[in-house]
Design a protein around this nucleic acid. Structure first.
Lengths: 161, 161
DNA sequence: CACAATTCAGTTGTGTGCAACTGAATGACG
DNA sequence: CGTCATTCAGTTGCACACAACTGAATTGTG
């Protein structure tokens, strides 16, 4: 059972495509539902974090979402333009920018409460299935992240002083 | 255990984030490995399809990958600029454009054969685990696609005057 | 205290992904 | 045969993602 290279390539096509497609399909379903709130999917992710924390520096936000400032900065500017968040440099540390919800941003949470319900209704997934799926995806992410750290490319690594 | 709205929102945060993060982590691992081939992840997906079919109109390519011309046209132009594919309008149907591999494109397959092996090595996933994961992701995609069709949105539609 | 290394947000450039549109070619139908 | 709808690739505009960089603030070290 050697599983020749050709078969591996075919299999890779399938898994690559499956994950890519699943991600985009998920995005698409949320897009339709979030349109009512005037949010994109990544903006919704940011708001979910802020509804939990209420006030957070950009750095922490990025750690929660695994996103860097190159993605977050313009995104937060758009959320600010929409009146949902306010950004102000920390007086403690002038390098840091605190992101906090406006009243409008807090109020939006009320309307967002129906989103998970609509998603669940759309997919027919119950809380248990969601939990299982989430666990598997996290396993995958952890494996991939570990792999990315272990083999950043070819050779020249040296990441942790 | 009625699972109040607040808990649903928290759960939604987790599954949203998990899928989003998994997709990006996957992308990141492939990015590192595909850099050697000079391909991006979506370009690799296109090449995988072409290695199977050798010649395909843009339309069919889009059906295989669930991508539309808005995404494929510029991507294919880049692959053409890289010398991997050639695009020529069909003589049968002047609306259609046939995409076919160049010799270089065909040759790249040889170097790509090591990609799945390196991915597998990076993640420690065997063929069986890959198959199971793929099946779950396809289930998810099918559920989400069906949901997207069933509930395109709700209000301002007006798709065909 | 001075000065180099680090941390942080932001900017720039490239490559998707998708909606909406354009324009050319084909097909359907009276 | 002529007109109108449909099909197809391509373009435009917007919003991520991410790498690489900038510039300001802070920290660590001597």
């Amino acid at each position: 059972m050697n599983t020749p290279d050709d078969d591996w390539l075919r299999l890779d096509q399938q898994i690559c495509f499956s994950l890519h497609a699943a991600s985009r399909a998920f995005n698409g379903v949320y897009r339709g539902i979030l349109k009512d709130l005037g949010l994109t999917y990544p903006q919704y992710l940011v708001m979910l974090v802020l509804w939990e924390h209420d006030e957070l520096p950009v750095k922490k936000l990025g750690e929660h979402l695994r996103l860097d400032s190159g993605t977050l900065s313009p995104l937060l500017k758009r959320l600010e333009a929409a009146g949902l968040v306010r950004r102000e440099r920390s007086s403690r540390d002038e390098r840091s920018v605190e992101v906090r919800l406006t009243e409008e941003g807090v109020a939006l949470r009320g309307r967002a409460l129906q989103v998970p319900r609509r998603i669940a209704a759309s997919t027919g997934f119950g809380p248990e299935e969601v939990r299982v799926l989430r666990a598997r995806l996290d396993d995958l992410t952890n494996a991939l992240d570990a792999a990315a750290l272990a083999e950043p490319d070819g050779s020249s690594a040296d990441e942790r002083p």
